[in-house]
Design a protein around this nucleic acid. Structure first.
Lengths: 355, 355
DNA sequence: AGCGAGTGTCGAATCGATTCGATGGGGAGG
DNA sequence: CCTCCCCATCGAATCGATTCGACACTCGCT
C-alpha cells in the first residue's frame, strides 16, 4: 500500500470487482449509476487519479500519441510560419480527438533511431521534412506504426499533397508573361548537407526533396533551364544571404526576377533588394511560395502560390487518426492558387538581352 | 503467430529464455556476446522491431516522454520567437537524453482535462504559460507527475526563473534617465479573457500571470503608477493594434516612451510608429523584453531586457530529467541584462509637461 | 407459475516486457 | 583432485489496466 493506489485498490474499497471499476471509469453505460458513484467516491477517497495511461495503452494497444517529424531542429523549423501553421492544423485535430502531439526533432538533423524505437506512438506524420527516403520511415514501418506523409516522403500509408509542379508553373508563367527572361531560382536545400550556392546539373539531378524538385520542374517547364541558387536552410537569414549573392552583381548580369521557393526565403530576398537599393518590382520582381502570413512585411504583398496550409495539417491529422482506427484513408490533394501581390511587375526595359 | 513477433517469440527462436533476450536488447554486459548475437540474429530473422515501448514503459514506470504546456494554441504561441527558442532549448536536452517532447496545447486556451489524464508523461514543463493557478497543475500533481515551472506557475516541484522585476526596473530606469516622464506600458494579457485596452486599478490588482505582474511592478517602482494598455495576446499584430491606440493621439497626450512587455509586442509598436510617421527614438522611444531574435527588424536594434532563453529551456529540461530520475533539483535563477539598442533616446524637449 | 429477455457484475485471461533472486556449469586455486 | 567462486542464464513474479464471455438476478408477459 506504499505507492499510488491502483484500480484494484479502488475496486476493493468500493466493494466491486476490478472489472466493474474499470467499466465505471470508462463511462460505460453497462454499469449502474449507483455503482459508478460508489466507485468514483472510493477513488476520490483514496486519491486515485484515474487509470494509469501506460497500463491502459498496453492493454488497448493504443497510446493516443501521434508523432510529428520535423526535419530540422525545432528552432529552425519554427522560424517558418508555414511550418507552424501546418503543425497548428495537426494539433487542432488531434486535440479534438484527445490525442497528443509528440514532436520529433533532432539535434543534428533528425531524431535518433534510439529515440524512435523507444517512444510510444500510434502513428506518425512526416510534416516538414520532404526527405524522400528518410531513414526513420523503414524503422517505423517495421514497428507497424502507420505513416502519413505531407508533400514529400514516399513509403507512407497516406499522402497529403499539393500540386507543387502546377502551382510553380503557373507562377513562372505569370513571371514570364510580365516579360522576364532572366530569372533565377532561390531554392530550399536540395539535400541535407549544408551546401549553398549555384547548383550544378549533377546536383540538380540528385535533389532529395520531392517538393523542391517539383517546384523546380514547374519553373523549368516555363523557362527551360534556369540558374539555381541553393540555400542552407529555409529561413529569412539564408534568403537574405542568397539574395545578396544573386542580386549583388552588375546590373547586366542581374536577374530581373527572382523566384524563391518559399515565402520565408522571399522575405530574405526582399531584404537583400532593399539593402542593395533595388526597387521591387521596378528593378526586380520577387516571388515566394506557400502564402504564409509574413506579418512583418507591412504593405508589401508577396506574389506567391497560396496553399491551404492549416487544412493540410488537419487533413494529415485526420488521416493519422483514421489509420489508427484501422481505416484506410484516401490520399488527399489540396488545391493551390496563384496570388499576385505587389512584388512582381513588368521586366525592366532593355534588361532582357543576352545572358 | 498472427501479429507482430514478441520478445518471447524471439527468445524461443534463439533458444534462450525471455529474460536473456531482454538482457540482450537492453545491452546489458551480463549477457555473453555470443548469446547476444544469436538473439539479435533471431530478431532480425523474425522481423522483430525491438521491445515494445509501451510494455517497457509499464514495467519500468517511465515512458521517456516529457510534456510541455503552452498556454495558447500552437499557432499563436509560436508566433513568438521567444517561445520557440525556449522550446528548442527543451528539445535539445530531451533529445540528448533520448526523451520525447509532447506538446500540450489547447483548442480553446489549454489542454483538456481528459487529454491530460490520458497521455503518458514522466514529467511536465509549464513553458510559455505563466498562469499562476493553471488547473492542470493539481491534476498532474495527483497523478504524481513531477512538474517544472518556467517563470510563472506556483505549485511546481522546480522553478526556472529570471528576475523579471529587476530587469524591468533597470529598463525603466534607463528610460527615466533619458528624461522620459510620460510613459505607457503595453502589457501582455493580464488574464485569460481576451480583454484589451486601458487597464483599471482593479484589473491591475487581479493580474493572473506572474511574469506580467513582476514586469509591471518593475516599471512602477521607477515611474509610480503608469497607464497600462492590455493586449489580447502576445503577438506582433496585437502590439500593432495597441501601438496605434496608444500613439495615435494628439502629441500632447502621447507618451514619449512606450514600454512593451515583450519584443514581439514592441515590434508591433514599432510598426504603429512607422505608420503614424513617428520617428524612433526621436519622437518616441520604444522598449521590449526578452532579447528575442527579430530578424525582420533589419538595422533597428530594440532596446530590451535580454534573457538567456535557450538556456532557460535547457535548464527546465534538465530539471525535468532530474526529477524523473528521482533527484530533487534546485530552483534556477538565470541572469538577465539590459541591452540598449537604437530604439530609445532622450525624451523630446518640452514634451514632459502635465499629462 | 414458468419462461425468456435483458441488465448489471464478476473471473480470468491478456497486453509485452523487465528484473530479482536462484541455479547451474566451468575455471582457478589449493 | 576437490572446492570455491563467479559468471551467464533462467523462472517467475510484476507493472496496472481492459475486455470477453459467463453468470445471476430481476422484470415482464402469458
Amino acid at each position: 500500500m506504499a505507492g499510488r493506489p491502483t484500480l484494484a485498490a479502488v475496486a476493493a474499497a468500493a466493494g466491486v470487482s476490478p472489472s466493474t471499476a474499470s467499466l465505471a471509469f470508462s463511462g460505460s453505460s453497462r454499469v449502474a449509476p449507483h455503482t459508478r458513484d460508489r466507485v468514483l467516491a472510493a477513488a476520490q477517497r483514496l486519491g486515485y487519479p484515474g487509470p494509469d495511461p501506460v497500463a491502459a495503452s498496453l492493454r488497448r494497444g493504443r497510446t493516443g500519441v501521434i508523432g510529428a517529424f520535423i526535419g530540422e531542429r525545432l528552432l529552425y523549423a519554427f522560424r517558418d510560419p508555414h511550418a507552424i501553421t501546418l503543425l497548428d492544423g495537426i494539433s487542432e485535430v488531434l486535440g479534438a480527438h484527445g490525442a497528443g502531439l509528440l514532436l520529433l526533432a533532432g539535434d543534428a538533423g533528425r531524431p535518433s533511431a534510439e529515440q524512435i524505437a523507444r517512444l510510444p506512438l500510434d502513428a506518425a506524420v512526416f510534416a516538414t521534412c520532404g526527405l524522400e527516403d528518410d531513414p526513420a520511415i523503414p524503422l517505423l514501418r517495421r514497428r507497424g506504426v502507420p505513416l502519413v506523409g505531407v508533400e514529400g516522403p514516399v513509403g507512407t500509408d497516406v499522402l497529403i499533397d499539393i500540386d507543387d509542379f502546377g502551382g510553380s508553373r503557373e507562377l513562372a508563367r505569370h513571371v514570364h508573361d510580365l516579360g522576364h527572361r532572366r530569372v533565377e531560382v532561390i531554392a530550399m536545400p536540395l539535400r541535407l548537407d549544408g551546401t549553398t550556392g549555384p547548383v550544378s546539373g549533377a546536383r540538380r539531378a540528385r535533389t532529395h526533396y520531392r517538393d523542391v524538385r517539383r517546384r523546380l520542374a514547374g519553373v523549368e517547364d516555363v523557362f527551360g533551364s534556369v540558374p539555381i541558387h541553393e540555400t542552407a536552410s529555409n529561413s529569412v537569414a539564408d534568403g537574405l544571404a542568397a539574395g545578396r549573392a544573386v542580386l549583388g552583381v552588375p546590373a547586366e548580369r542581374r536577374p530581373t526576377a527572382v523566384i524563391a521557393q518559399s515565402d520565408v526565403l522571399a522575405a530574405g530576398v526582399l531584404q537583400a533588394a532593399a539593402e542593395l537599393g533595388l526597387r521591387v518590382p521596378e528593378d526586380v520582381s520577387i516571388t515566394g511560395f506557400d502564402g504564409a502570413d509574413l506579418h512583418w512585411l507591412g504593405d508589401t504583398r508577396l506574389t506567391t502560390v497560396e496553399q491551404p496550409t492549416a487544412e493540410k495539417g488537419r487533413a494529415a491529422a485526420r488521416a493519422a487518426m483514421a489509420l489508427v482506427a484501422g481505416d484506410r484513408p484516401q490520399d488527399v490533394l489540396l488545391p493551390i492558387s496563384l496570388r499576385i501581390g505587389t512584388t512582381t511587375g513588368p521586366a525592366p526595359r532593355g534588361a532582357n538581352g543576352h545572358r
